[in-house]
Write a protein that binds this DNA or RNA. Structure first.
Lengths: 210, 210
DNA sequence: GCCTAAACAGACCAAACGGTCCGGAAATAT
DNA sequence: ATATTTCCGGACCGTTTGGTCTGTTTAGGC
């Protein structure tokens, strides 16, 4: 029942190290020996916690997805506390993410899901559907808000709430890529600001809280 | 001087096959033996055309970048023929890309540059700066237009032409990722439409040509 | 304090992988 | 025709890589 020794801490260290390396080298480029050196453990420790590299991949993905879901949920709650209006909630939501990224001094290391997507073929169905579900959950989260907004504030142009919701993820993922390629830490917050600007113009919102 | 035999055709076949596999498996996931089987050649043929796998990587990137530059240039020319107004030119430019992607029946296989970016650490400086330059060129291409537009049509909100230009690439790259993850071929054209919609609202353009 | 099982360390292994080498076919120059 | 060079097939090689195995240490249960 209780965690014996400190095995769980080692497991987390492995997951952290592997995540860092996957974001720098890709999943195939991340070699186990490299993780061992990076984390400061041995083969015995690693394979005690993970039967295979594939199992590490899945654990890594699951952890990342749940951590991300937590951030999304917390940010959403925070936005909902600051306003009752769905449009304002979305605008605050985006702005909170902008603030998160604007404080960074070097480019965001990237999204683990995206790095998996670009090596998609070598993962099994379980991993692929996990990716699908995670992105789908992000879509649903914002889609609900946009449906409320569309009803309350007639958009200047006919728009699809699901597409608008995907837009957030699209901008984030795209910005991560350009941020790394151009070595520009401000990319993510800048592009999110443009996305927020779009939402403002589309629904003709009053000037948002600064 | 002249190309003897048909070695150049084989070289192209290798590049095509390698590109396909990189987009499915990533660069590290793309194994040479797999390329040989996919293309239908042998080790002797491969290493006759490319000294190392790294050299293949660079050749692949250079070819992709120049092909992409050609598409951008042609689309830009086409847009400039259809209108003299910089704003209309941009809107047509985006729409032409939308049309390119709307005809697809399966998700766009992805951008080779992006797949390199997510394994960036394992490439040398030459490759990395080639990535940087390619993205920078795309930025400049649209930035010039946006600078003209901003002067001619005062935007509803203060905007940065370079950031607006990056927005196009950001949306494209992000859409490719979601398209693969969600297995949705329409993602790219849909998200480009939203980007175009943003530009329209921002500069309060008249309804674009349908 | 003793037992048990988790939590490692590290030598070892088989397969996969990038790359070499040499022989031969095929095309071109002379 | 012959020499020469490109082009390619395929056996071979050293290293890397994911994974195994055995032994040892360490932390709790009693």
């Amino acid at each position: 029942m209780s965690m014996r020794k400190d095995g769980l801490a080692t497991r987390e260290k492995i997951l952290d190290g592997a995540r860092d390396l996957v974001l720098r080298l890709g999943y195939s480029g991340m070699k186990i020996d490299h993780v061992l050196e990076h984390v400061g453990i041995t083969k015995g420790a690693f394979f005690h916690h993970f039967k295979t590299k594939d199992e590490l991949a899945k654990a890594l993905l699951r952890r990342y997805a749940s951590q991300d879901a937590l951030i999304y949920a917390e940010t959403r709650e925070q936005a909902e506390k600051l306003s009752d209006d769905p449009l304002q909630q979305i605008l605050i939501f985006i702005r909170l993410f902008e603030d998160m990224f604007s404080e960074m001094t070097e480019p965001y290391p990237g999204c683990l899901l995206a790095s998996y997507v670009y090596e998609l073929q070598q993962f099994d169905d379980e991993t692929r559907s996990l990716l699908h579900e995670t992105f789908a959950r992000w879509r649903t989260l914002l889609q609900e808000k946009f449906e409320l907004i569309v009803k309350k504030y007639p958009p200047k142009t006919p728009v699809n709430p699901a597409q608008l919701a995907d837009g957030f993820t699209v901008v984030l993922e795209g910005a991560f890529i350009l941020a790394k390629a151009m070595n520009d830490a401000r990319m993510a917050s800048e592009q999110l600001r443009l996305y927020r600007n779009y939402i403002e113009l589309l629904f003709a919102a009053p000037a948002p809280a600064r």
